[in-house]
């Protein structure tokens, strides 16, 4: 944990003071954060022994943090002793890595050819219209992110929408509303739990 404190602090200096204060104010969040970094340490420990496992480490880090902020990239670079520019180069090259936080639900429309010829573009338009955001953006409430993906390989079910892990096949623009509503319901249930 000592190392984390070091990198964490150097990074905090670059951040706006307001954010630092906010982070300090919430002990619960702080606790969650250090648990995340502890998880990341385990991942790095497991994979850094093998050569060429940077992509794997980044994938696992994204699973832990939800996205790859600068702070995490710098931390990984330091730990496996490579320049942070190299880590950033890899992060920005591959489309699976995100440097911005994503919504709770990522709605992915498959834009593979099979889905495209079966009307994926119309679905995408309907989805953008419904959520009033563009592709790659997140709704202001942080619930939904719209993305397009290249072929999930379930072309028999075209056109396809993937909501987080759930694959919805053969959907029509009308069904998009239903899927969004189901997600929203899940969201409100979660809120009540808290």
């Amino acid at each position: 944990m000592a190392e984390y404190d070091v990198t964490g602090e150097t990074h905090k200096e670059q951040e706006s003071p307001a954010k630092v204060v906010q982070e300090k104010k919430d002990p619960l969040q702080e606790d969650h954060r250090s648990k995340q970094f502890a998880d990341l340490d385990r991942v790095i420990g497991r994979y850094s022994r093998e050569r060429g496992q940077l992509i794997r480490i980044l994938q696992k880090a994204q699973e832990i943090f939800g996205y790859l902020p600068e702070e995490v990239q710098a931390y990984i670079a330091e730990k496996i002793d490579i320049p942070v520019s190299e880590v950033n180069g890899v992060v920005t090259f591959y489309s699976l890595f995100a440097t911005e936080p994503k919504g709770k639900y990522t709605l992915n429309i498959c834009m593979g050819t099979a889905c495209y010829v079966k009307g994926a573009q119309t679905l995408m338009n309907a989805l953008k219209e419904e959520l009033k955001i563009d592709e790659g953006e997140t709704t202001p409430d942080g619930v939904f992110t719209i993305k397009s993906t290249r072929c999930v390989g379930a072309c028999g079910l075209a056109p396809i929408l993937v909501a987080n892990e759930d694959v919805h096949g053969k959907i029509s623009p009308g069904e998009i509303k239903k899927i969004i509503q189901t997600c929203r319901k899940g969201e409100s249930v979660d809120n009540k739990k808290h």
Binding site: L58, F93, Y94
Partner: peptide, 28 residues
């Protein structure tokens, strides 16, 4: 054998790009 994972870059199907990606670098 060991697995290596692609992270969503079509060009990595090209063999020299793939090699870079297997080594954990940008898949150019």
């Amino acid at each position: 054998l060991s697995l290596r994972f692609g992270a969503g870059a079509f060009v990595c199907g090209e063999e020299t790009a793939l090699l870079h990606s297997v080594m954990g670098q940008r898949g150019e």
